[in-house]
Amino acid sequence: MLSIRDLSTSYGQIKAIRNLSLDVEEGKIVALIGANGAGKTTTMKTIAGLLTPDQGSITFLGQRVEGWKPHKLVSAGLSLVPEGRAILGQMTVLENLEMGAFQRNDQAGIKEDMEKMMNWFPILRERLTQLGGTMSGGQQQMLAIARALMSRPKLLLLDEPSMGLAPIVVSDIFRVIKQINQEGTTVLIVEQNVKQALKIADYGYVLEAGQIVYQGTGESLLTDEKVKEAYLGGRKHE
């Protein structure tokens, strides 16, 4: 579904990712893990069209899409939940959801999806007329995911959905991500919460200083000694 080859992106003079290659197969959950500053968000922003790569290719559903504008990628079937959730705080929860469906014109379908989202995330129904900015972090994350799903994406990109959330909320979010995937949406997730992410992921990539250093199935990475030592707090916890 998504295939990235030799991708490099820089911020000014600094190369944030170098010769990065990864694949996301249809129907899977793929996790990209790594420490702060490893280049995870840069990778996501480049895929979503917010940053233009210096070199390399991004192929999405058979089309070369590197350098495309974000709104064009949304109509191609890609949807990003940005780092930090990026809720439109001055707009209501309902308006946030409506904006997620900006490119759609099938009113009946939009209404149906809106209903579906409110069943998945009952808190949204309660807060529908409230401003997005007045919700808690966990609620905002649910809204951000629901909003991204309103465009009916084929591939959902999640940039650190667990950031700044209480552990109990984090488990909720990961359960939801699993459910979204089971309903047919392919997921690429970026996380610092390595354990949780690898638990739900079919395949994982480990990013260090802008380059992929390990890759493998979620399970194999979870038990990999080097990954354990670097990201899972060493052996003694196992």
């Binding site: 709104h71 940005p82 707009m91 904006m99 900006f102 465009s151």
Partner: peptide, 24 residues
């Protein structure tokens, strides 16, 4: 819809664009 797109863009251009709004 267009009015809301203007408000969304005014609040955060980057967010508006990843929601599928042609911000230009």
């Amino acid at each position: 819809k267009v009015g809301k797109a203007i408000r969304a863009t005014a609040e955060n251009t980057e967010t508006a664009s990843v929601l599928g709004i042609n911000t230009n």
